[in-house]
Each structure stands twice: as C-alpha cells, then as structure tokens.
C-alpha cells in the first residue's frame, strides 16, 4: 500500500530541538525559525552534548555570523516560496524587509559563501516545490504554475527545464517509472 507523506520541516525541527534540549534539562525559548535562546550560559561540555544530540538529526549549531545570516536568507526564501499565498511584493523587497539588510549586501554575501546567487536559490526552491507538487498529483501544471507565481505553464516549463534540464512531464514520467520499478524489486 502506498502512502504519500508531506513534511513540515519547521514543525519537525522545532519538536526535535525542544525534545532534545528538554532531555538535557536546558531551559530555552524559541525566538524565530532556527533561533533559540538559552536561559543560562552553558559549558563547552554541555555545548558538545547538545551538538552531538542535535547532529544526529542533522541539526547544527551555526557559529559564525555569516553563516547565521546565510541560513536566515535561505530559510526566509524557503518560507517565502513555500507559502500558499502568492507573493504581493518582489522577492528582493521581501528579503530586505524581513532581514533588515540591503539586497545588495545580502546578495553578495550569499554568492560569496554558497557560490550561488539569491535569484538562483529562489529558482531552485521554486522548482523543488514544483517537483513536490507534481509528485503529489493533486494539482495540474497550470495550477502549480499559478501558485508559484509563473505567468503560464510554458513559463514554468521553461524554468523547470532550465534548472533541471528536463521538462515537468518528463520528470513526472521518470518518477512514475521509478515507482513501478521499486514495486518490481
């Protein structure tokens, strides 16, 4: 029997952090996405314990400022792309507002560290979401295109093909054949 799962990483990670920190008897509060404030300062050993516990789940403590900001940018973009409501403003404006830095600064920093531009990252995120939506089979390509702020299916196809090198329908086909294949094995 097949079951399709959708993951809400926000809730997932939050839950894990809460559990793990609570298990270590640490008092904390969650400020924003990916940001917690510990009540007391902790020793290096405790820090190591936390790091180990969280690393099991792929959760890392980001140390330096740059990395923190980069992560913030990524998270904001992810949130922006994944929100069900279409965006009312340009993404650059959105980021600037949300992160309180100039777009130019953010852009430069992002490219320097990740070797990709913000625009590219946004596109990747969009396409990633498109892939998930396609696989869910609930929406048509037209609806997906609309949700992702594309002017038409053709536009979505073009972007999709630009990023991945294959068309949305080819993607659909491959995933379907993969599923058939895994059932055979």
């Amino acid at each position: 029997m097949k079951a399709y799962l959708k993951f809400d990483y926000t809730i997932l990670t939050k839950k894990i952090v809460e559990e793990k920190l609570a298990a270590l008897n640490l008092k904390f509060s969650v400020i924003g996405f990916g940001e917690i404030e510990l009540q007391d300062t902790i020793s290096n050993e405790k820090l190591e314990l936390i790091t180990t516990a969280l690393s099991e789940y792929g959760i890392e403590i980001i140390e330096n400022q740059k990395s923190i900001l980069i992560q913030k940018i990524k998270d904001t973009i992810t949130e922006m792309v994944n929100s069900e409501e279409p965006l009312s403003v340009k993404s650059s404006v959105y980021l600037t507002e949300k992160l309180n830095h100039s777009y130019g600064y953010l852009s430069n920093l992002f490219s320097e560290v990740t070797y990709t531009s913000i625009e590219n990252f946004i596109m990747i995120q969009k396409i990633e979401l498109a892939k998930n939506l396609i696989l869910n089979n609930q929406l048509t390509l037209t609806e997906i295109a609309y949700q992702l702020n594309y002017s038409s299916v053709a536009h979505l196809s073009t972007q999709f093909k630009k990023i991945t090198g294959i068309t949305p329908s080819a993607f659909q086909r491959i995933i379907a054949k993969r599923r058939v294949q895994s059932l055979k094995n």
Partner: peptide, 18 residues
C-alpha cells in the same frame, strides 16, 4: 553547486534530477 544545495538545504535527494 546544485548538489551542495541539496546537501546543505536538506532538499529531497530523491527528487534531485539534473
């Protein structure tokens, strides 16, 4: 680069097609 994205942003590796 793309692979690094997948790696760092915890994107679904199964959907990684390029």
């Amino acid at each position: 680069t793309l692979n690094w994205q997948y790696h760092t942003s915890r994107l679904n590796k199964d959907n990684f097609l390029l």
